[in-house]
Design a binder for these strands. Structure first.
Lengths: 377, 377
DNA sequence: TTCCCAAACTTGTATGTACATCTTTAACCC
DNA sequence: GGGTTAAAGATGTACATACAAGTTTGGGAA
């Protein structure tokens, strides 16, 4: 049976948690210091007891204390200053001394507005001395989990800009977002966001965008307005809610048979869904599309069917992307200021990293961009 | 005067470089081990002399040896195994324990083929467990310098994929590329490259691309073929050289008045240069364009001028980007397989990082994609 | 030959001492 | 009050010793 010596007695008195008598004395001291830090008995900048004091406190030799302290110094928890004393490192030095690296996680990159957003983020970040690390989820939940887990595991970034994947449907991995918050890792959502999670977002005011698009069609004299929305992200829900708000305000009813919900997979091959789409457009004079990509496809489908745009069918998109100008019938659209969005997301994240109390949230007010895809009746 | 003790004598005998008698003994041992490593007297996996041996070799106490060895252990140079001995770490563990991070430096991101390239790089890299850090030069030499300098300074990546900026004009900062080579930092050029610098490249065979485009026009019966090329990157030079090769082989002469050289800035606003462009096209029935972006603009300018494409003027592009299909007159073009290029660049860099002797270079054979912008006479 | 075990050797933990070197502080002088 | 200086006290280097605990190895038993 081992004799319980002074060091153990001391720890017992102080109420140490781990009382395995087989762990070496120097580790006991290491753990003791870490405990004091957690309990806030020691704060950054504080001076630790001198080696001789610790040595007599714990009833161990000064060499053993030195062993412990040198371990803690390696972990950047303590800072030894010759002649002066041993101090607790400042947290920014202690934690990870800032990597000056931020992660950007988006669903896509080759989709129309993403290159611009990413370009602006990179521009603003590199201007401020940060490097940008990217990852794409391809709008797959498992990918997003893997990417976020990887970022959290590696712990190499000072902040994150995330475009949530499939924000419109219930997700099993909200847990990871919570973990980001728990770690106080500065983060900003772009485009989508989760109302339940307290992470600020920079995005278009999507409800207002849907509303403005509806108002524009209504003011152009349309009354039978179809809508095509994306079901698996929250922008789709919000834009739909703006669409209904506009119609209801104008005293019109919402006809479910004129509303089509599609998801990420559907958008990839809308041509295949042409009959389903045409059915929903039946009897309508206008169609409010989730975005320009959808509008672009709707125009193509209509034209192949002999439905002229805008003479027989008015089409409006949202996002005001290049596609809107490249389309054979230039598309009237709602502007999503991708440049400003990227820049603001980056700038706000930078502020957030410097001052965690900064309110980094922002929503852009939608503006209509008129082109030739809507007929005024 | 200090007495020269055994440790110093030992080092003198062994021909140590630094003989400052004021540096502590444990540091002498640290330096000695590092020297042995540089001189290849010690190789990864080798067993170091035991602590007692070193202690008597240097004439110091075992504690002092332990101090030195523990420093080297911290630096991940040595690996202590209790009961067995102390060993030299394997290089991959020793060097920097791999950051599993690669840098991708391109000129643009929002230009047509870049999103695809970057997407594929990210896809392949993340599949292999790497994270991707991006930076854009906007085709500005100073930006490129700053970006590369930053990457080298931070030393946080295992490899680099670079699209050289303005590869067609003499550059002051080739020095940085040399530095990359000197550090044995795995790197791959994409799109452009410098023949003088021994860094492998993955790109289209641009000379062959120019040649194929010229052959296609020649076989379609054209003889007066104008050319518009980019002067500030090497692809422009190579594509031009393929163009001349094709014409000369067909027994035609190169008419300088039908060749237009433009640069990055010109491409931004080609509309402003319309008269200059139209002058070069005068008397020609076809125009070989540096890329689809240029071809797209040429088609627009021609149409505004009442020159029909392809009836009055055949136009051929290179890259086979989305623009080629979005153009009002779908463009015949030469395929640059952006997906394969990104994937191959990533995969080859991964191999290169694992085996520095791997030949990572690759050039794609150009293939023609026929659409409606060339008339067969 | 194969297996087991103890001896020999290795690193790990711990103590004690001594002196060097740097910083802080307080007493001192002007 | 301000500058100087020496003492006190902190960490840094270095030595010697002892025992603990894990690995390797070779000799002896089966």
């Amino acid at each position: 049976m081992k004799i319980m010596n002074t060091a153990y007695k001391f720890l017992k008195k102080k109420g140490a948690e781990t009382m395995d008598e087989n762990i070496p004395k120097y580790l006991l001291i290491v753990n003791w210091v870490k405990e004091q830090l957690e309990k806030n008995n020691l704060k950054p900048g504080d001076k630790l007891n001198s080696e001789n004091e610790l040595s007599s406190m714990f009833g161990v030799s000064r060499q053993t204390v030195r062993h412990a302290v040198s371990m803690l110094e390696q972990e950047k928890i303590l800072d030894r200053r010759r002649g002066s004393g041993t101090y607790i490192c400042e947290p920014e030095v202690r934690k990870k001394s800032k990597t000056m690296n931020v992660a950007v996680v988006t669903t896509y990159i080759d989709d129309y507005i993403f290159p611009t957003i990413i370009k602006e983020i990179e521009r603003a970040m590199s201007k401020a001395g940060y490097t940008v690390q990217i990852a794409f989820t391809h709008n797959h939940i498992e990918r997003e989990s893997a990417v976020l887990q990887n970022i959290l595991d590696r712990d190499m970034v000072d902040g994150i800009i995330i475009e949530p994947t499939k924000s419109g449907i219930p997700k099993p991995n909200l847990e990871l977002y919570e973990e980001i918050r728990r770690r106080h890792l500065p983060a900003i959502f772009i485009n989508s966001y989760y109302p339940k999670i307290r992470i600020p977002h920079v995005s278009l005011d999507d409800q207002a965008a849907g509303y403005e698009a509806a108002r524009y069609l209504l003011e152009a004299g349309h009354e039978k307005i179809a809508g095509i929305f994306k079901s698996d992200d929250i922008q789709g829900h919000l834009r739909y809610s703006g669409y209904t708000k506009g119609l209801l305000e104008a005293g019109l009813k919402i006809h479910d048979e004129n509303v089509l919900w599609i998801d990420t997979e559907d958008i990839r091959n809308m041509e295949a869904d042409r009959n389903r789409i045409l059915r929903r457009l039946e009897g309508c004079t206008a169609c409010l599309c989730y975005n320009d990509e959808v509008a672009f496809e709707v125009v193509k489908i209509c034209q192949k069917e002999g439905i002229r745009v805008p003479e027989d069918m008015s089409v409006i998109g949202i996002d005001n992307s290049d596609l809107a100008t490249h389309c054979e019938v230039p598309l009237t659209s709602i502007e999503l200021p991708a440049q400003d969005l990227g820049r603001l997301a980056a700038e706000n994240l930078i502020k957030l990293m410097e001052d965690s109390s900064f309110d980094a949230g922002f929503e852009f007010v939608p503006k209509i961009v008129e082109r030739n895809s809507v007929k005024k009746v």
